[in-house]
Design a protein around this nucleic acid. Structure first.
Lengths: 340, 340
DNA sequence: TTGTAGGCGTTATCAC
DNA sequence: GTGATAACGCCTACAA
C-alpha cells in the first residue's frame, strides 16, 4: 500500500493539486462535482492526508499536549482521561507526556510537544519551578499554555487550581471538632505548592481554635504509602503517636494506617485519619477513609476550556479558576461510633 | 522572541543553508571553524530546529507512540513510565494516548500517532480486536508495531505477553493445596485475552486436582472494585459464598473483600483471596493480599527493545516473548495462621 | 471555478 | 568544503 499524496490524485484526475487541496478544505469555492469526484477517488485510493506537511504549512495541528508530573497516583490518570474525553469532542487529539516528578524531564516533554506543534499545552508542573521562566517566555511568544494544579495562585498565568487551603482547613477543623486532642499533619513535599497550601489550611484551623502548639505537628513526607509507613515507624519509635492524622493524600494515609495496625493500634478507635485528593480506595479501605474529594473532571474540563479560549483568541485574558471540592466523612475520623 | 530558522543563521553568517544544516548533522564534512561558528551563533540566537520540517524531509521523528487501553489500574501507568524511562535513554520521546477501553478510540489514537510520524508504535489493545486488521495492514506496509499484553499468543505479530495461564494455574493450585474446598474465580471480561487465559489456568488446576465440578465456578466481572462488590452482593443473596476466591486483579479482590467484611465475613478465616497483576495496595490491604506479580518494567523494556530492533532493521523477525512473574503469598490466602 | 507558483523548515544531491 | 537547488506534502495568494 503506497502512501498517496494530493499530487497522485491530481495527476490521476487531471486537475491541479490546489484543486485537490481545496476539495479537502471546504472554505474555498469549488465545483460540487469536482469535489465529489476528488473525494471519491481519494477514498478509493486510500489517500490519507499527511498531517506533518499540513502542520508545516499552516501551523495548526489540532493536537493538544498534556504534561503531567506522574500518573501512578490516580489523580492525574483521571485528569488525563477527562481532558481527552472533553477535547476529543472539540476535535482535538491529546498527546500525553509524564515527567516522573523530574523538572528536567518536564522541560524536555514540554519542548517536544511544542516542537511537534501542538496547538496548546496543559501543564501540571512537578515540584520545584525552575521551568516557569521557560513557560512564561513561551506564553510571551504567544503560545497558549494553561496550568493545572500544583501552581501558586500568584503566578500570572492562566490556571485551574484547587482551593487546598480552604479544604485543608475544613478537614483539620473536622478533626478538632471531633474532639481529637493531638493532631499531626503528614504534609507531602515541602516545595510542592499543594502541600504548602494544605499546611497553611492546617495551621489556620489550629490558630482559629487556639489549639495548643505542643499538640500539633507538621511532618514532611512524600506522596507515597511507603513514606507514610516510614513516618509512623519513627513516631512509634519515639512513642509519639497522636490521636489523629491529617494526611496530604490517601496513599500516605493508607501506609500510615497499615503500619499502625501492625503495631496494634486500632483505627479510628486509637488513631483517627483524614486523607486528601480522594481516590477510589478511600471507600474501600477498612475503615473507609474520610477524605477531601477534588472535582477532577471539572478541573480538567475548565483547563481545557481556558486553553481553547486562548487558542481561538490570542488576546483572551489570563484567568485563574479556583475550584472547590467536598469533604466526605467516613469511619476513619469519626469518634464514639462503633466500627461497622 | 522570533522563531529562527537555518535561513536566518545562514544569512547572518553569509553561508548557505546547506552549510548550516550540515553543522547540525555531523555526518557531512565541514570545516571545524565554520561548524563551531555556526553552532555558536545558533546558540546565541536561540535557534531551535523545527522537528516538523525535519520529519517531513527525512521521515523519521525519534518519537515513539504508545497506546494503552486505560491507565487507572496502575499496571499501564507503570508500563508507560517504564517505556519512557527506557526509550529516553535511546534518544526517543514517548507520546502516549489512552483508549478508555474503547476500540474506536484506540483506532483513532493509533492513526493520530502514525500520521504524526512516530517511528513506531507500542500497542496494548483494548478488549475486542476489530482493530487487528488495521494493525496488520500497517505492519504489512512496513510500519513497526509491537504489542504488549492483552493479545493472543497466536496472532502473528511481535509482542510481549505475560504467561497468564501458567501463573493463574499456580495461584489456583495454591488455593487448592491450602485445602480450600470451594473456589470461585472472578474472571474479568470474557472477551479480554488475559482474562481468558487466566480462566484456562484456573480450569487446568481444577482438572489436575480432580476438583469436583460443583465446587468451583467462574464468574464474569469487570476489572474494577465496584464489580467485585456487585458479584459478592449477588452471591450473598444466593447464600453461595465459597471459601476462596481467585480474582482477575487486585481491585476486584479489594471490592469483594470489602463487601464480604461488611457482611460479617472474615478474611482469610471465612473466605480466602488471591489477586493478580499485583499492585501497590496488595501489600497495604488488611489482610495483605496474595497476588501474582507481573514484571511490568521488564515487559515494557522488552517491548521497547523489540520495537527498536524492528525500527533499525526492516527485516527483523516477528518475535513473541512470554514473560514469567512471581506469586507472592500473603495472609489473605493462608490457612491456619492467626491474623497478625 | 481552477491553475500556477511560492512558501513552510529541513535534508540531500549535485555541482563547483 | 561549500553553495545551489530540488525535494518532502500541503496550503494559499494571485492570476487566469
Amino acid at each position: 500500500m503506497k502512501h498517496y499524496t494530493i499530487k497522485d490524485i491530481a495527476k490521476k484526475l487531471n486537475v491541479s493539486v490546489s484543486t485537490v487541496s481545496r476539495a479537502f478544505n471546504d472554505k474555498y469555492d469549488i465545483k460540487k462535482e469536482t469535489k465529489a469526484l476528488i473525494l471519491k477517488t481519494a477514498e478509493e485510493m486510500g489517500y490519507m492526508p499527511n498531517p506533518i506537511a499540513k502542520k508545516l504549512s499552516q501551523k495548526r495541528s489540532l493536537n493538544i499536549g498534556v504534561v503531567v508530573p506522574e500518573f501512578i497516583n490516580e489523580y492525574y490518570s483521571e485528569i488525563v482521561i477527562a481532558l481527552q474525553e472533553f477535547l476529543i469532542l472539540k476535535g482535538y487529539q491529546v498527546l500525553v507526556m509524564q515527567s516522573d516528578e523530574n523538572e528536567d524531564l518536564e522541560l524536555m516533554n514540554a519542548q517536544t510537544l511544542i516542537s511537534n506543534m501542538v496547538d496548546g499545552l496543559i501543564v501540571a508542573p512537578t515540584t520545584g519551578n525552575r521551568n516557569m521562566k521557560y513557560y512564561q517566555d513561551r506564553i510571551k511568544d504567544g503560545y497558549p499554555i494553561v496550568f493545572l494544579n500544583r501552581i501558586e495562585e500568584s503566578v500570572p498565568v492562566s490556571k485551574v487550581v484547587f482551593n487546598n487551603l480552604k479544604w485543608s482547613f475544613f478537614a483539620t477543623e473536622h478533626l478538632i471538632r471531633q474532639g481529637y486532642k493531638k493532631i499531626y499533619h503528614l504534609s507531602g513535599y515541602k516545595d510542592l505548592s499543594v502541600s504548602y497550601e494544605r499546611v497553611q489550611g492546617f495551621k489556620k484551623a489550629m490558630n482559629k481554635h487556639n489549639f495548643p502548639k505542643e499538640n500539633y505537628k507538621i511532618i514532611e513526607t512524600g506522596l507515597l504509602a511507603k513514606e507514610g509507613m516510614e513516618v509512623i515507624e519513627d513516631l512509634i519509635f519515639n512513642h509519639d503517636i497522636p490521636d489523629a492524622f491529617f494526611c496530604v493524600n490517601d496513599m500516605v494515609a493508607l501506609g500510615a494506617i497499615k503500619k499502625l495496625k501492625e503495631n496494634g493500634y486500632a483505627v479510628p478507635k486509637d488513631v483517627a485519619f483524614v486523607g486528601f485528593t480522594e481516590t477510589r480506595i478511600a471507600e474501600l479501605m477498612s475503615p473507609p477513609l474520610s477524605s477531601v474529594k477534588q472535582p477532577t473532571y471539572d478541573m480538567a474540563k475548565k483547563a481545557a476550556e481556558l486553553l481553547l479560549k486562548r487558542i481561538e483568541d490570542e488576546n483572551a485574558p489570563i484567568e485563574t479558576i479556583v475550584m472547590n471540592g467536598e469533604f466526605n466523612i467516613r469511619q476513619s475520623s469519626v469518634k464514639n461510633k462503633a466500627v461497622l
